[in-house]
Computed example of a mutant assay.
Amino acid sequence: MTRTPLPASVGGHWVGLACVAKGPARPALRVEVTAGRRLMLRQADQVVLLGVQRARNQGVYYARTGRYRSPLPPLTADHARRMRETSLDDDAWAARWTHKYLDLLQVADNGPLHAGDWNLAWGMPSWTVAGHWQRLTTVDPDHGHITWFGCGDPEDDQRDILPLRPLSPAGAARVRSYRRQAREGIMPPALLWWVSGLNTLLVLDGHDRIAAALAEYTLPAVVVLAPAAGPSTAVQGRLVRAYEGRRQQSRTSDKTHIAAITRRFAGQLNDAIRSEGRTRAWPLPGGTADWDRQATQLVPTWTSRPAATV
């Protein structure tokens, strides 16, 4: 696998890695699809998530099966402490964890990496809403619905992150351990995965770290794995021309104003560089009949499923 840093367009801070995976052709953790807007997230021989997209891009109904397992090995507190203590600053710490996660994903036998171009970006995408994090502690059912673009659905259905298992309680032993790490500033980031068919970020690793951060009334650090969209030259050129136009139209020499324009341009360029591409999906063996059979067997109480195809 080749890897290169994503251009540091915002103040020189760490943005992430662009990488090219040579294989496998089909990963163990993958999305499979069939007719009727049905999709399935499979991990080796286990079905870990079922989904049905609503018509007219209004959202997706989902059901977790409780069979998901993280593709990463456990991260010890000693290792987390060494990573922080041997990093010169926050950017070096972020870079080291990004490289570490890519190393672990490369050797994982049940992860989502497959041949193609990927980004492993630091921090949440700009389109996410920070206020949605706290909902995970109160509204995170195994069988639920994610609203796309509002659509007049309940506010609690608007979310950016879907855990692949329920978050542990704040008082659970592992969460208490991570809460101590959070207070020390050494807790590793969570690893998220963009799946375009769900239009949301899935939690690949770090469910208990997310629970710990939220219990400490803070937001977790995250690394986001996504297929690379690859900003076109036309998009970059458009951003540059718009920035130059704003500079020329500005009639003030106020350095603060110019700096604000420049920061906005840098943020737009950063978003284009790290934008999430379309997640590859594979045909579901057995088609719709197999999807219906799996849904009936694995989540017989999924009452929203029949309405999902309307």
Rank of each mutant, 00 (worst) to 15 (best):
Asp205Trp: 07
Ile210Arg: 03
Ile273Gln: 04
Leu164Thr: 10
Tyr243Trp: 15
Ala63Phe: 08
Tyr62Cys: 08
Met40Glu: 01
Trp148Ile: 08
Gly245Lys: 03
Arg67Trp: 14
Gly230Tyr: 08
Arg241Thr: 14
Ala115Lys: 12
Ala213Gln: 06
Glu276Phe: 05
Ala35Trp: 07
Glu216Trp: 04
Ala121Asn: 05
Trp282Gly: 07
Gly111Ala: 10
Arg246Ala: 15
Gly185Gln: 05
Leu219Met: 05
Arg64Trp: 09
Ile261His: 02
Thr309Leu: 11
Arg64Ala: 06
Gly277Asn: 09
Pro163Met: 11
Thr4Val: 09
Pro154Tyr: 13
Leu88Cys: 01
Ser168Val: 07
Pro74Glu: 14
Ala259His: 14
Ala212Val: 04
Asp205Asn: 12
Pro71Thr: 04
Leu201Gly: 00
Arg241Ser: 12
Ala259Thr: 14
Ile161Thr: 07
Val60Ile: 15
His143Met: 10
Glu155Cys: 03
Arg174Gly: 01
His114Thr: 13
Leu120Lys: 02
Ala307Ile: 03
Leu88Trp: 06
Thr288Asn: 00
Ala182Pro: 00
Tyr243Thr: 02
Arg305Ile: 07
Asn119Ala: 01
Ser87Tyr: 06
His79Pro: 00
Ala259Lys: 13
Pro163Glu: 12
Val10Arg: 14
Arg174Ser: 09
Pro189Lys: 09
Cys19Asp: 04
Thr288Asp: 06
Arg263His: 07
Ser196Tyr: 10
Ser275Arg: 14
Pro112Ala: 13
Gly23Ala: 13
Ala94Asn: 02
Gly66Thr: 10
Met1Ser: 07
Trp97Phe: 02
Leu102Glu: 02
Lys22Glu: 15
Arg165Cys: 09
Leu136Cys: 06
Val20Asn: 05
Asn270His: 11
Ile210Gly: 08
Arg54Asp: 11
Gln46Lys: 11
Val139His: 14
Ala228Pro: 00
Ala130Ile: 04
Arg305Val: 02
Ala173Leu: 15
Thr86Gly: 03
Met187Gly: 00
Asp160Met: 03
Ser253Asn: 11
Trp93Phe: 13
Arg251Met: 14
